[in-house]
Simulated scan of single mutants.
Amino acid sequence: MKLELGSPPESGDLYEAFINALIIAGAGSGTIKLYSSAVKDFLDFIRKDPRKVTSEDLNKWISSLLNRESKIRGDEVERRRAKSVTVRYYIIAVRRFLKWINVPVKPPIPKIKRREVKALDETQVLKILEACKRIKDKLIIRLLVDTGLRANELLSVLVRDVDINNNMIRVRNTKNGEERVVFFTDETKQMLKKYIKGRNPDDKLFNMTYDALYRKLKRLGKRIGIDLRPHILRHTFATLSLKRGMNVITLQKLLGHKDIKTTQMYTHLVLEDLRNEYLKVMSAK
């Protein structure tokens, strides 16, 4: 996170000063929430002036994070991974805080195993759309597959953010805090026209919570025997876009990735598909 936070105060509440510095520097809401939780957790654990923190303090805190019971939804492997991701981000946040207050202690940052990326093929997408009984459900699926939006980003979109004439949605509430634009197909455009007709511009496009959306997708997937979750549709958009010839730089911008390395993981999926197709054809000789 490349933000200019300035210098810490000589006295006063360092935690509040750090969070205010993040806000003033223009950090995204997600970053502020994460850093607030991480630094508060750390300070509550050490119960001392953070300027007097030692490596031993940090190691004890990290051990406590690793030993806490995970409350993440999902199977055991996914819970462990989600837990290790949270620990990693907490440590990065605290390290940034300590650097800001000029404490020369660097905690070790654990590596995490890359999550298996699951994506649907075009046939599976069509089956899901056919399983939708309501236009709202079908529109949600189409928009997630057309745009690659994260679930929370889609749920933050207002009616006025939708530019029907240009097949475009302006996404203001993003993970990294930077506004971006995504696009949708003409087929989705026709559905959107009917769906938003007469709606108040300041209304949310889909007035529902993340949990409600998650459950809805799980139910739709169950109808056709697929474990469907919001991020799978984002992965699907990315892999289908690359297969149809989109370049990685364009895909990075549409997905809202800060680091192109995050986007490049999808090229591995496409290459894997090509390899499997090649072996299937060549083995048939």
Rank of each mutant, 00 (worst) to 15 (best):
L251I: 06
I140F: 03
A119K: 04
I24H: 10
N152L: 09
D137L: 00
R81G: 08
D44G: 04
P104R: 02
K71E: 12
R95H: 12
D163Q: 06
P230H: 03
K48Q: 13
E122A: 14
T123F: 15
D259C: 07
I92G: 00
I101N: 02
L129F: 10
L255E: 01
V145R: 01
T267D: 10
K127R: 15
K222V: 05
A82T: 07
I232G: 10
N152V: 03
R80H: 12
D49G: 13
S36F: 10
N276H: 09
I196P: 02
K113A: 14
L154T: 02
T86C: 07
L143Y: 00
Y195P: 10
D163L: 07
T86W: 06
W100C: 04
T147Y: 00
L213F: 08
S63D: 15
F183H: 08
L251H: 05
K2Q: 13
L120Q: 13
W61E: 02
T54W: 12
M191N: 02
R275K: 15
V159D: 01
G12Y: 04
D75E: 08
F183Q: 03
N152S: 13
G6N: 03
S29W: 06
L14Y: 11
K189I: 06
N67P: 02
L149S: 02
M282C: 10
G221Y: 07
V145K: 01
Q264L: 14
I135E: 15
A27H: 03
L213P: 11
R95F: 11
D57C: 05
P201G: 07
T54D: 08
V125D: 05
A25I: 04
K83T: 09
L3K: 10
I101H: 02
D161I: 13
Y210D: 11
E56R: 13
Y35Q: 04
R150H: 02
Y210G: 13
I91N: 04
M191L: 07
K189P: 09
V103D: 06
A119N: 05
K189M: 11
R150D: 04
P107I: 00
N176Q: 06
P108Q: 05
R88M: 11
N152Y: 04
N276I: 05
A27M: 10
L154F: 00
R96L: 10
A119W: 13
D163A: 05
V94P: 02
Y15L: 15
R81T: 07
R234Y: 09
D75F: 04
